[in-house]
Each structure stands twice: as C-alpha cells, then as structure tokens.
C-alpha cells in the first residue's frame, strides 16, 4: 500500500514516460479558502484513475484546472506533453479537442435536440466530415450508449440516467484521448449507476481513452478504477489499488470503504 504525498510523487516520476496528464504541486484557492494544496499526481495512458474524496475536497476543481476552466494559482499541469498554463487561446482550443469532459449535471444544451447536441462539437472539431458521415457517427455513439431512439428528443424529455448517457455520447463523439468524468453517477439509482460505470469501462476499452473519474460513490469507484487517489483537505491522502483501500486500517479510508 502506498501512503500519502511522498509515495505519489515517486509514482509520478516512475510513470512519467507513460503519463498523459502530469500534475505537480498544484495549488488553488478561492479567497481565503485553500481548496487544493500541493497536489501531485499523474494519469497513465489507458488507465481509469478514480479520484475519491468528501464533498468540497476539491475534486471538481482539480479536473476544471486540467482543462483550464479554472486557472491554478501555482503548480504545473502537463496534458499530453503540453503545459496548459502557457498555451495561447488557439493552443488551448486544440488541446481541449483531445479531452472529453462529462459534467456532473450533464450540461446538455436545453434548446437543442439530442441530435443537435451531438452535432454541435462534431461540426466544430471534425470539420472534414460531411453530413452523412456526421449522421452515421451520431447514430453509432448513440447505439453505444444504448439510446439510438432518443435522436429527436429534447433534454427535458430525458431522465437523469438518459441525460448522463447522452452527455457521455456527446463527449465521445469527437474521439477524445482523455476523458474527465465529474461525478458520473451522482443522483442516480444503483442500477443506472452500474450501467453508467459499465459504460465508462466500455468507453475505456473501445475508444482506448485514459480517464480521471471524480466521485464519492464507492460502488462506481469499485466498478471502474484501475487506481484510486483519495483527496483530503486539498491534498493527496492515499494512492493505491482498490484492494489497498479495502484493506486500509486508516479510519478516514475505512469510513469510505466499510
């Protein structure tokens, strides 16, 4: 079992050559509140990395810093070899095309149908596709998430689980290399939650993505994680495999896993 920060730094340097995301000494505050304090972690190519932690521990802030929706106060974030803090608007836009972000709320565009929601990023990122290829691609991803019949529905006609699936379809339609999932199973019943977890694994297998999954749902972590990082008070508290966490004697870890 690896424990706190020092071991995670060692792992980060060990896996540097295989890393698609490297974060070093990341700090982020909102006013007086320090949300992230000296976070160091890496995402290895092809793995599902689950980031666990209590609500308010800075999990969502962490992945928003990765796509620069929030600017870090200190630290370095390298994504696919690019330091995101030094990228200009065009460079950032190009890098974002390789990253899929599944928002906690789904963030489907209310005024558009499911088809238009999927077309939106596709027409902007894959500019070389013609109408027929776009249609084929949309149907293919909708079949992958099991909602091919929802093509002409609007978001308000969809259930919570369906919205998450469509949102996932919108994210994978542009073939991202990295997936960032922000609380993918929050607010869903256990059956739908398991379906979403299975979809995350399917996406990893079929599209060969590397993913960071932010969650406080142990069931989801269990189903999807290749490796887990636990955040506490804005720092990496523990890093390891699912079994390491299950066998941990630390009361804080136990309160999650038992």
């Amino acid at each position: 079992m690896n424990t706190p920060q020092t071991n995670s730094i060692e792992n980060a340097s060990k896996n540097r050559d295989k890393s698609v995301i490297e974060i070093k000494n990341l700090k982020k505050s909102f006013g007086d509140q320090e949300v992230l304090q000296n976070i160091t972690l890496n995402l290895i190519k092809g793995e599902n990395l689950v980031v666990l932690g209590k609500s308010g521990s800075g999990k969502s802030v962490l992945i928003k810093c990765i796509v620069r929706l929030l600017n870090p106060d200190e630290g370095v974030i390298n994504v696919l070899g690019e330091n995101i803090s030094t990228l200009n608007t065009k460079g950032l836009s190009t890098l974002r095309q390789k990253i899929g972000f599944l928002f906690q709320s789904g963030a489907l565009y209310d005024s558009m149908t499911v088809k238009q929601n999927l077309e939106f990023p596709l027409r902007r990122i894959k500019k070389n596709l013609n109408d027929k290829e776009i249609e084929t691609k949309i149907i293919e991803v909708l079949e992958n998430v099991g909602l091919a019949d929802a093509l002409h529905k609007i978001p308000s006609q969809l259930s919570g689980g369906m919205r998450k699936r469509i949102s996932l379809a919108r994210t994978i339609v542009v073939d991202p290399m990295i997936m960032l999932y922000d609380e993918p199973t929050t607010g869903l019943d256990p059956i739908t939650s398991d379906e979403i977890s299975a979809l995350i694994n399917k996406v990893q297998e079929k599209y060969k993505t590397s993913s960071i999954i932010i969650t406080h749902d142990i069931r989801c972590a269990h189903n999807t994680a290749n490796r887990i990082i636990m955040l506490k008070d804005g720092e990496v508290y523990m890093e390891g495999k699912v079994a390491d966490f299950e066998n941990a004697t630390d009361p804080f870890i136990q309160s999650f896993f038992q």
């Binding site: 929706l69 990253i99 972000f101 906690q104 963030a107 565009y109 209310d110 990023p121 990122i125």
Partner: peptide
Amino acid sequence: TEQIDAMEVSST
C-alpha cells in the same frame, strides 16, 4: 447548469 463551460471545453 454548466452549459457555457461545456461549450468552452468542446472548443467553441
């Protein structure tokens, strides 16, 4: 509902 953020991360 984070739709503006979603737009931003999808390079729009």
